[in-house]
């Protein structure tokens, strides 16, 4: 089953592209709402880190990528994986530890990986994938296959030294890699201003990377800024750094409910009411007469039905058989 429509890069109008991004963002929102539901009903083991509120970053950037381009993702990675083309049914199956999941149940929520969509894997070590993304860009350059790699990470990864090691290497070797920093303001339960000295962009420009900052709640702006950095990297002009300012609507993980000790409810309400990426795009689509409300609600109904079907698929899918525990330790 493929809910996320495969993109044809050759024919696309502005309207088609905006609607495709709308659909992707909505799909991620509906997916994550179901993750929350599965988790709170104790159907999902482990941990669930929701991407709700940040959809425009993954969607805007991945809209500018080709299917065989690479991404690396994070513990908050469902949005990146879906935006890069993963199917919700196999995603849900992985989240529930089922054999039909992308990793045959061995990875779970924090480790979705899929060669078919260029997804090198979500990573549960903060900044753990910065080397992998940079290495994929290195291989793409050496093999001359024209691919680029996008490394998604949260602003918490700015605290890891390995990020600065690879940005230095990427610039020295002029690698086609784009580091996308999603600043959702909170490093777990701590405001980023308490953990981050100086200006974030300066950390990239110090190495000579092409750096840009964008409103991460505006998918069209993310796409435009992302496209510029991606195409520049693809032309061999070197790595880029995109800082997307965004917001995590929910807790660090499902279950992080009492949040007032680290952020006020009014702040959450403000982002949800005034800066929601889906609402903002809806408004723009209607204003520009690129879609009407009937069309948009039909899309929502269709996606809702497909997501429910995907959940059903995962819930009823079998677990891996016990002998699989020792499989795939070595290739």
């Amino acid at each position: 089953m493929t809910i996320i429509t495969e993109r044809s890069k050759t024919t696309t109008t502005k309207a088609e592209q905006a609607l495709r991004m709308y659909r992707q963002m909505l799909a991620i929102r509906l997916f994550e709402e179901r993750v929350n539901d599965l988790y709170t009903r104790a159907l999902m083991p482990g941990l669930a880190h929701l991407y709700i509120g940040e959809e425009a970053v993954a969607v805007g950037v991945c809209e500018a990528l080709h299917k065989d381009d690479y991404i690396t993702s994070t513990h908050r990675g469902h949005g990146h994986c879906l935006a890069k083309g993963a199917s919700p049914d196999r995603m849900f199956a992985e989240l529930l530890g089922k054999e039909a999941g992308y990793c045959r149940g061995k990875g779970g929520s924090m480790h979705i990986a899929d060669p078919a969509t260029g997804n090198l894997g979500a990573n549960a070590i903060v900044a753990g994938s910065v080397g992998i993304a940079t290495g994929a860009a290195f291989a793409a350059q050496r093999l001359g296959n024209g691919r680029v790699a996008v490394c998604f990470f949260g602003e918490g990864a700015l605290g890891q030294g390995s990020l600065y090691e690879v940005m230095n290497l990427a610039q020295l070797f002029k690698l086609p890699v784009i580091y996308v920093c999603e600043n959702n303001l909170y490093t777990e339960y701590t405001h980023f201003s308490e953990t981050t000295a100086g200006e974030i962009l300066n950390r990239a420009t110090a190495f000579g990377l092409e750096a840009a900052m964008v409103d991460g709640q505006d998918v069209r702006a993310v796409h435009e800024a992302g496209s510029r950095l991606i195409e520049r990297a693809r032309r061999g002009e070197g790595p880029g750094f995109l800082l997307a300012n965004t917001y995590r609507y929910t807790g660090h993980h499902v279950g992080d409910i009492a949040r007032e000790y680290y952020r006020p409810k009014a702040e959450e309400q403000e982002w949800k009411m005034d800066r929601d990426p889906i609402k903002n795009l809806t408004k723009w689509l209607l204003e520009q007469k690129l879609a009407d409300s009937v069309q948009l609600s039909a899309m929502e109904s269709e996606l809702t039905a497909e997501m429910d079907k995907a959940v059903e698929f995962a819930v009823t899918a079998p677990y891996p058989s016990p002998e699989e525990v020792e499989q795939d330790v070595y290739a």
Partner: peptide
Amino acid sequence: SEAGFTGMAVGAAMTGL
């Protein structure tokens, strides 16, 4: 940058080198 270039090697090995 041992962590940096070792990490790069992991990614490069995954993608064809």
